[in-house]
């Protein structure tokens, strides 16, 4: 059974509660990124590039039986971890739910505040791109 967005968000928030120190959170994010399967190089092109990120992020999406699946990669470790978190929450969900979520976990794990504004913009751009994909299939 596919878990709901809210369920996965709760899981992530719980995992991050284990860390007091911001550096440990980063270490965890980076590890999550390392586990993200590599994106097929044919998708690592400008067509799939997320605009507004200082580091490069490529996002690819495909639909299967009403669910939307995401694959992603980045040239920096931290961004890759961040996009991996988004993929974990949103991949396999119904486009409508993807469009409706406000991704509350980002604030709860205190991610946005500690990322520079440029990086935050990158985060917003990733979310915008994922929602744009969802919009196509809704």
């Amino acid at each position: 059974m596919q878990k709901s967005i809210a369920e996965i968000e709760d899981e992530i928030v719980e995992e991050f509660e284990l860390f007091d120190e911001q550096m440990d959170k980063y270490e965890y994010i980076i590890d999550i990124g390392k586990k993200l399967p590599a994106l097929d190089s044919k998708y690592q092109t400008d067509d799939f590039l997320v605009k507004g990120c200082q580091s490069k992020v490529w996002l690819h999406a495909y639909e299967k039986e009403g669910q939307l699946f995401f694959e992603a990669d980045s040239n920096t470790a931290i961004t890759k971890g961040i996009v991996a978190l988004l993929v974990r929450v949103l991949s396999g969900q119904h486009p409508k739910e993807i469009l409706n979520t406000s991704l509350i976990f980002i604030d709860k794990i205190n991610l946005r505040a500690h990322l520079s504004s440029q990086r935050s913009n990158g985060l917003s751009s990733m979310i915008v791109k994922m929602k744009a994909y969802a919009n196509v299939y809704v």
């Binding site: 911001q22 550096m23 580091s55 470790a77 500690h114 520079s116």
Partner: peptide
């Protein structure tokens, strides 16, 4: 290692360097 990753992790430790 991408310079940006180092920049973020140094910033997290109070250190301002430039990357890019």
């Amino acid at each position: 290692i991408h310079p940006y990753d180092l920049g973020v992790l140094l910033n997290e430790q109070g250190i301002a360097i430039r990357t890019g």
